[in-house]
Simulated scan of single mutants.
Amino acid sequence: MKIRVGFGYDVHRLTEGRDLWLGGIKIEYSKGLIGHSDADVLIHAICDALLGAANLRDIGFHFPDTAKEYKDVDSKLLLKKTLEVLTEKGYRIGNIDATICAEQPKINPHIPQMQKVMAEILNIDTDDISIKATTSEKMGFVGREEGFSSYAVALIEKI
């Protein structure tokens, strides 16, 4: 059995007047993340981890922010397309471990729904997608509530 590991990282700024999308779900909050797509920082980090594990470059290569078809796109579609690319190359997902860094709002209550939504898209068990939330203890851009960051590691197996 051949296994591979990939790492993903993403960051987006917060702003007024945008919806907050994380892990494929809309979270009620006074601000949202800025990006060419819906700026779902968690899904973007997971896509990068999966693509990197398969040596398929990164999310910007596959879904460039200069492409009109990805303007304001739902990141769940990017996740689905990432799975399609992995499958075409002969891989399946073993597991994903991800962390969201944000001061507010509290993310932990939303984690089970995020797991459910992304597990359905990726055709894996909710047990195979770990999501954790943390703050940056009021330090840096996350601590000043200027934006969110997210990290992800993915294990894939050759079918």
Rank of each mutant, 00 (worst) to 15 (best):
Y9K: 09
F63W: 02
L78T: 00
T15I: 10
L86F: 07
L50A: 08
E28W: 08
T126R: 11
A45L: 03
A154G: 01
L78K: 02
T82A: 09
K26E: 14
Y151W: 13
E146N: 08
S30R: 14
V142S: 02
K89H: 08
V142E: 03
D74C: 04
G32N: 01
E69R: 12
K106E: 14
L22T: 02
I129H: 05
I34D: 07
D10S: 15
Q104I: 10
A154D: 00
V142P: 01
H62Y: 06
L86W: 03
E84H: 06
S30T: 09
V11L: 02
M114S: 02
S130V: 09
E157D: 12
V85K: 13
A39S: 14
D38M: 01
K68N: 11
L77A: 08
K158F: 13
Y91E: 05
K76M: 08
W21Q: 09
D72F: 12
I129F: 07
Y9E: 11
D97S: 10
I34E: 12
Q115Y: 01
S130R: 12
S136H: 11
I27T: 12
I3F: 11
D19Y: 10
G90M: 13
I3M: 12
V41D: 00
T134M: 05
G90K: 13
N123P: 00
R13N: 11
D128M: 13
I156M: 11
S150T: 00
E157V: 13
N123F: 09
P112K: 12
T126Y: 03
A54L: 10
A102V: 11
E146C: 07
T66L: 08
I25P: 00
A54F: 10
D58A: 12
L50E: 04
N95P: 01
T15K: 12
D65L: 06
K2A: 10
I3Q: 14
E84D: 15
G8I: 02
V153N: 10
K31L: 11
A133P: 06
I121G: 02
L83Q: 05
A152E: 06
D72L: 13
M118G: 08
D127S: 15
K76T: 13
P105R: 14
E145N: 15
A119V: 12
T135E: 03
Q104A: 14
Y29G: 04
Q104E: 15
A39R: 05
D127R: 15
V85C: 01
